[in-house]
Design a protein around this nucleic acid. Structure first.
Lengths: 135, 135
DNA sequence: ACGCTGGTTGAGAACGATTGTCAAACTGGG
DNA sequence: CCCAGTTTGACAATCGTTCTCAACCAGCGT
């Protein structure tokens, strides 16, 4: 085989819209809803459809380039993230976010899961509180 | 004071509808959506409006008598629960649920939060996996 | 540079969960 | 039995998110 390109070739094209979303994500470090991100893009003079924002965020989330989690109302909120596994400490008033790591927690969850015979484990852990500035 | 009834008097009345929701909740031990609970009630011959199911579930959740969490689609799902603080190990295939407790995790989250100056802490922690029966 | 092919986009409709509205029905106390 | 405050239900209204589909654009071979 003459390097028959084994990769399925995702064919993700670098378009103006995707750049705009990436730029918007780079502009803040707390979690924002798709609507807010859409608004931010508009304020930056760009024009990107809301549906496209959703599509792009979903793609980025699949690629592991952004974190997506749900706030207490069940809305999806996103932000760019580091590539290591971590969790978040989020201010429920202003949204200020701190990435935290807890090896012990990771160990605990897999131990618990194994103990009950569960396989293929994943978990969600988010901490909400009021940050110093908002108290 | 002659016991001037300092409580705002919640006046939660035991109605047919509330009993029906409670009965439905007692009928299963995994998490179900409001719609599913509503359907279950119908199948049991009772007739309760969907809005009432939502209202009742919200009330029960406030009272701490049911757990409410969100599945991966962001939908709210409920089930009756024990009264101690705990988390869940949920099978992502069949929904089988195990309540788990992790004092260490509770301690860790509050420690992390305090360390960063966050107050009034709450947290969510759910573990998803494939149960023995579904493997 | 030109045209083709398939990924991408946008506007708006469609959707589905959840909440709000408001008059009618119900509950418990007096 | 009456009254005042709760609760309910049918349905409209929200709201976040996804779908639809024709127009558009990027990369590639010629």
């Amino acid at each position: 085989m003459t390097s028959t390109d084994p990769t399925p070739r995702p064919a993700v094209r670098p378009t103006r819209q995707r750049r705009a979303v990436a730029a918007a994500l780079a502009g803040f470090d707390d979690f924002r809803s798709a609507q807010e991100i859409h608004d931010l893009i508009s304020q930056q003079g760009e024009s990107v459809g809301l549906a496209t924002v959703y599509r792009t965020l979903a793609t980025l989330a699949d690629a592991g380039e952004v974190d997506m989690l749900r706030n207490e109302d069940g809305e999806a909120i996103w932000r760019s993230c580091s590539d290591t596994h971590h969790h978040h400490l989020v201010c429920r008033t202003c949204g200020a976010t701190v990435e935290v790591e807890g090896p012990a927690v990771e160990r605990w969850t897999s131990a618990i899961a194994t103990e009950h015979g569960y396989a293929d484990i994943s978990h969600t852990l988010e901490i909400f509180g009021t940050c110093p500035a908002c108290r």
